[in-house]
Simulated scan of single mutants.
Amino acid sequence: MASTHAVDVVVAGGGPAGLATALHARAAGLSVLVRDPRAGVVDKACGEGVMPAGVAHLEALGVRPAGREIVGIRYCAPGRSAATRFRGPPGRGVRRTELHAALREAVRAAGIPVEQARVERVEQQRGGVLVDGLPAGYVVAADGLHSPLRRALGLDAATRGPARYGLRRHVRLAPWTDHVEVHWAEHAEAYVTPVGEEEVGVAVLTTRRAPYEEHLAAFPELLERLAGAVATSTVRGAGPLRQESRRRVAGRVLLVGDASGYVDALTGEGISLALAQARAAVDHLVSGDLPGYERAWRRVVRRHRVLTRALLAVGGSPARPLLVPAAQRLPRVFSAVVEAIGG
């Protein structure tokens, strides 16, 4: 990289995608600066189930957040359930705050500076970029679902289909399962993730705007499980979940994580995908093959997008009530889908 750069890589965004990018960049011998306007550890609406592939990515970075082992996925509907286990190593249920804290500590230990500031302006130059006046080699935009940089670069793309939203809260309750449970109701799904010895997270995905408690009323069996449990966090929301980008590379700027585009949280792969993209982005910065990152990004997300769009299509059709019975009757198919999600 050119010696006139004050820093090789500026990472815009200090969430998991941005911090993982920074760690990979430092490991590759690059100088890196993280900028994020938020201070400290940040909580966020998240299903908090890190799939096995995501756990492997974290291990490669030396990051081992506290949480609970997840051995598979169970689909639930009134009076029915279908469960399958991951064939390889387990996943992990991890509080979003715990994951963020573990990544921040790894960044601190690596000596990577984190500035509490927003990246406001990126100017492309020959052989580099100016980031709010700071000469840099590249920018990695990891500034979230509604990425200001994606919009500023003209990379936003129109989305189709109904808007979906997520809501999440934790309760103090000993986990009754070592699976991520996905409970299906008429207009929503509820995700139960064990995240500690005495704590579970319950997230709801839906197209309907309503209070969290009103959504939970659609899951009577789950409500019975949660009866009397004390909330350990406030309700947090996110959405609209679906965001699209026209491309992931603009000059010397690369999009990573939710900023690069997001379909839905239905399969729980968000963290795993973000971590895989972070690695791919740095690999292509080091090689100088920026167009190659676009191809790598498509490879990383292809399977996830096909599965998620298929599940959303079925979930939005009259066949929705048949999903759990079908998973019961076709265990090999269900197992293959879960394995694709996890790995």
Rank of each mutant, 00 (worst) to 15 (best):
A39W: 08
V42L: 08
V42Q: 08
D43A: 15
D43I: 11
D43F: 08
A45I: 12
E48Q: 09
G49F: 02
V50W: 01
P52Y: 02
G54M: 01
V55T: 03
V55D: 04
V55N: 02
L58R: 01
E59K: 11
A60G: 14
L61H: 03
V63M: 03
V63E: 04
P65Y: 04
A66D: 13
A66S: 11
A66E: 14
G67P: 06
R68T: 15
R68A: 06
R68C: 10
V71I: 13
G72E: 12
R74P: 05
R74A: 09
R74V: 06
A77N: 01
P78M: 03
P78V: 00
G79T: 09
S81C: 14
A82I: 07
A82M: 13
A83L: 08
A83W: 00
P90D: 02
G91K: 00
G93T: 11
V94Q: 04
V94H: 01
R95Y: 06
R95Q: 11
T97S: 14
E98K: 00
E98S: 12
A102Y: 06
A102I: 12
R104V: 14
V107E: 08
V107H: 09
A110Y: 00
A110W: 09
G111K: 04
I112Q: 07
P113V: 09
P113Q: 10
P113F: 10
V114L: 15
Q116T: 15
Q116I: 10
A117P: 08
R118C: 12
E120V: 05
R121M: 10
R121A: 15
V122Q: 02
V122I: 10
Q124T: 05
R126A: 15
G127N: 10
G128T: 03
G128R: 02
V129C: 13
D132T: 11
D132Q: 07
G133D: 03
G133W: 03
G133R: 05
L134Q: 13
L134I: 12
A136E: 11
G137C: 03
Y138C: 12
A141P: 05
A142F: 01
A142C: 05
D143E: 07
H146E: 10
H146L: 12
P148Y: 06
L149F: 01
L155H: 06
D156E: 14
T159Y: 04
R160V: 13
R160C: 10
G161S: 07
P162Y: 03
Y165N: 03
R169K: 11
H170N: 15
